[in-house]
């Protein structure tokens, strides 16, 4: 798993690459902890290069959302493959997250 961040339109876009699973989830959480401790107000996570997410990966994303909400921050997920989207549906998490089809839309409409 790899992650890089860019600032676009004044908000933070995170590009996660690879698998988010039992082995890599702690690293993903650590990367976001830095953004959360500086109270980053708006984050878009581009998941186009994420090949697999397991339950611990989903739980890590929920934890990130929970921590961001605690200071009034907002999180959007974009560019999810249909396979990963169906996981969000099975676990009923699609109603918890703001899931936007692509990054461009997620950034331009994030106010």
């Amino acid at each position: 798993m790899q992650m890089k961040t860019e600032i676009k339109n004044g908000l933070t876009v995170c590009y996660v690459e690879g698998e988010i699973d039992i082995n890599t989830s702690p690293g993903v959480k650590k990367s976001f902890d830095k953004l959360i401790s500086s109270k980053t107000p708006r984050i878009v996570v581009n998941l186009s290069k994420v090949t697999y997410v397991d339950s611990s990966g989903l739980a890590t994303l929920v934890e990130i959302l929970k921590n961001m909400r605690s200071y009034g921050g907002r999180l959007r997920l974009s560019d999810m493959s249909s396979k990963i989207k169906s996981l969000f549906e099975i676990t009923k998490l699609e109603k918890l997250f703001e899931i936007i089809a692509d990054e461009k839309e997620a950034v331009s409409t994030f106010v």
Partner: peptide
């Protein structure tokens, strides 16, 4: 695993 307790609880 090395998952945080908060993540395991979820």
């Amino acid at each position: 695993t090395k998952l945080d307790k908060s993540v395991i609880d979820i």
